[in-house]
Structure formats: structure tokens, C-alpha cells
């Protein structure tokens, strides 16, 4: 019997998810023994046309990381969907949009203008923008186009499983790979990982009070050395609205949770949930006092939807052009 075929692909991502696959360390050898890797652009040289030539459903599983932000990424997502039995959204960007989805607060034109014309690190006055197509010496080369909207993978194609995290931990990755290799598969649509809040596995849990009674919010660096529950100290921590499974990597490392695992299965909108939880625990009862306390959260969208804006209920800032 031939070995199952596996593909790894990246879209709008930073490369951290690829790093996690490498972080499987010796375990990756066990995986490589059992599967044939047919596509892995970060590590191995395969051509897209070879994948295109494969029969549909001939890849057992594709691990796709990164959000879908350009025509090329969308095209590859569609092709890999066709070629794969299981398509796995790997990492926060593919799962919920991730950091790239924060771009859903800005028009495409503004992003391009800043990055290619106004950024202080550019050569002044050059204003070179990428062209979709360019002909030189009779040869035409093309570039993908940026979409207006950044999307999570399942907003483009059907997704079988989700591996959460920015990046997913080696443990969660191993659990996903083991499930696939053993054929002991959870129901379609499952997010690999526990289905309870991060606080459950946080080592600071014992110092979490019944009521927080926030009077002011502090920045993490003002409270880094204290061992108590971050929220008890007035530091915004996404733990109560975030899925466990990372073994509380950030909170045990002295930083509050920023929510990369997304919500649990009962949460439809992670940002709305943490907003609800934090606000209801304010000490203030008068509008002015409430606003004064809440001024300590200057950017609620960026704080509460750091990894999940694409999959939030509103998805994108509403008054942006869809075709500038």
C-alpha cells in the first residue's frame, strides 16, 4: 500500500506555522516515514503544475496556514481543496483570519499607499507600486492581486478540521497528525484542542477572584513580575474567551493571553464575549466613571479581535470600499 500523501501550504502568514511543523523535532521523522510529502514550499521544491496534474482527492491531507488575501492564495486554496480528502486550516490565520485580518479595518488603497509610498523606510519619491502585469523584452510577467477583504480559509473553501494557535503548539500539531494517520477522526469541523476556556489550564487560576471590579486597566509591562491572575491586576487578558490547548504558554511566560486559539465551540464572536466579560466586571456604575475606566482599552477592535476579525460577526469595517 502506498503511503498517504500530505501537503503543507502557506498563504497570508508569517512563517511561524511552518516553524511549528519543524518544531515537531525528531517526531517529524516518524511522520515523514509514514507519509509522502507532495508539497511544502518552505522546505522542499515542488511545482504547482505537478499538483495540478494530480487526480482530485489524491492528497490525503493538506495543512494550509495563513489567511486568504490574494488571488493566488485563493486559487491555491481552491486547487488544494480539490486535490485533498481532508483540508486542515492550520494556525490562527487560516482558522480565524489572524493578524493579517486586522487589515479588514482599512481600505486596500490606504494599505498599499502606505506600504509602497509613504512608509518612512522607503526611498522618498520613488512610489513604485507592484504591477499586476509587466512586459519587458517581449515577456509578460504577472503578479497576484490583493483582495479587498482578508478571509479565513473556510470563508473561501470547505474546511474539514481546524488546528488553532499562533502558531499551533507541537502538541496540538501532533494530535492532529496522529488522528489523521490513525484514521480515528473527530467529526468534520472540529477544532483540534480542548473545548474549554484557557483559564482552566492557567497556572494563575487560583488567584482569579469571583469579581474583578476593574477601576483601571494597565499595560502588561506595568504588571509583568506579578504572579497573580492578569485580570485581577487590571491587565486585559483574553483567557476567559479563548480556547485552551496551548498549556497557557503566554500566561506562564509572564504575558496575558491575546486570544490566538479563538473561542470555544459555544462562542460565536470572541471579541463580543471578552467585551461582555470585562465590561460587566467594571466597578463603576455611572456613565462618566465607566468611560474613564474603559479609556484604558483604547483599541477594542485590535485588542479583542487580534486574531479573529475575519471570522467575527461583522467581519470587516463596514464603510470601506469594496472596489476602490
Amino acid at each position: 500500500m502506498s503511503k498517504p500523501k500530505v501537503a503543507f501550504y502557506w498563504c497570508a502568514s508569517c512563517g511561524g506555522c511552518e516553524e511549528t511543523v519543524v518544531d515537531l523535532a525528531e517526531d517529524i521523522l516518524g511522520v515523514v516515514e509514514k507519509v509522502d510529502i507532495v508539497l511544502w514550499p518552505v522546505a522542499m521544491d515542488f511545482k504547482y503544475k505537478d499538483i495540478e496534474a494530480m487526480p482530485d482527492k489524491s492528497i490525503t491531507a493538506t495543512f494550509l496556514n495563513g489567511a486568504i488575501r490574494s488571488t493566488e492564495q485563493e486559487e491555491m486554496a481552491r486547487m488544494l481543496r480539490r486535490k485533498s480528502v481532508f483540508l486542515i486550516a492550520y494556525g490562527a490565520c487560516a482558522h480565524t483570519g489572524g493578524i493579517p485580518a486586522l487589515a479588514n479595518q482599512f481600505p486596500r488603497e490606504q494599505i498599499l499607499k502606505f506600504n509602497y509610498e509613504d512608509a518612512p523606510t522607503l526611498v522618498p519619491g520613488e512610489k513604485t507600486r507592484p504591477q499586476l502585469s509587466c512586459t519587458e523584452d517581449g515577456r509578460t510577467v504577472t503578479l497576484p492581486q490583493l483582495h479587498n477583504v482578508v478571509r479565513a480559509l473556510d470563508q473561501v473553501v470547505d474546511v474539514d478540521y481546524y488546528v488553532p494557535g499562533c502558531p499551533p503548539t507541537p502538541k496540538i500539531t501532533r494530535a492532529a497528525v496522529d488522528a489523521l494517520l490513525s484514521g480515528n477522526l473527530p467529526p468534520k469541523g472540529t477544532v483540534i484542542g480542548p473545548d474549554h476556556a484557557l483559564c482552566e489550564e492557567c497556572e494563575r487560576k487560583d488567584t482569579k477572584p469571583d469579581k474583578w471590579d476593574f477601576v483601571e486597566f494597565k499595560r502588561p509591562h506595568q504588571k509583568l513580575m506579578d504572579e497573580k491572575c492578569f485580570l485581577a491586576q487590571g491587565v486585559v487578558c483574553m483567557g476567559p474567551a479563548t480556547r485552551a490547548g496551548c498549556e497557557a504558554a503566554c500566561t506562564s511566560g509572564g504575558m496575558p493571553c491575546t486570544g490566538c486559539f479563538g473561542g470555544t465551540s459555544r462562542v460565536r464572536d470572541q471579541g463580543a464575549k471578552i467585551l461582555s466579560s470585562i465590561c460587566s466586571n467594571l466597578a463603576a456604575k455611572e456613565e462618566d466613571e465607566i468611560d474613564k475606566t474603559l479609556a484604558g482599552i483604547p483599541d477594542p477592535v485590535g485588542t479583542f479581535y487580534r486574531y479573529g476579525l475575519a471570522k467575527s460577526i461583522l467581519r470587516r469595517k463596514l464603510n470601506l470600499p469594496s472596489n476602490p
Binding site: 467585551l275 461582555s276 474603559l294 463596514l318
Partner: peptide
């Protein structure tokens, strides 16, 4: 009602940030 008021204050600001 206090819980509601506190959520309302921040949600309104967040909705404005989202263009509503």
C-alpha cells in the same frame, strides 16, 4: 442593568470603530 450599561458603552465605541 449596570452590566448592560458598561457593555453598551464599550460596544458603542467598538461599533463606531467598525464603521457603524
Amino acid at each position: 442593568n449596570y452590566k448592560c450599561l458598561r457593555r453598551f458603552q464599550l460596544l458603542k465605541r467598538m461599533l463606531m470603530d467598525m464603521g457603524i
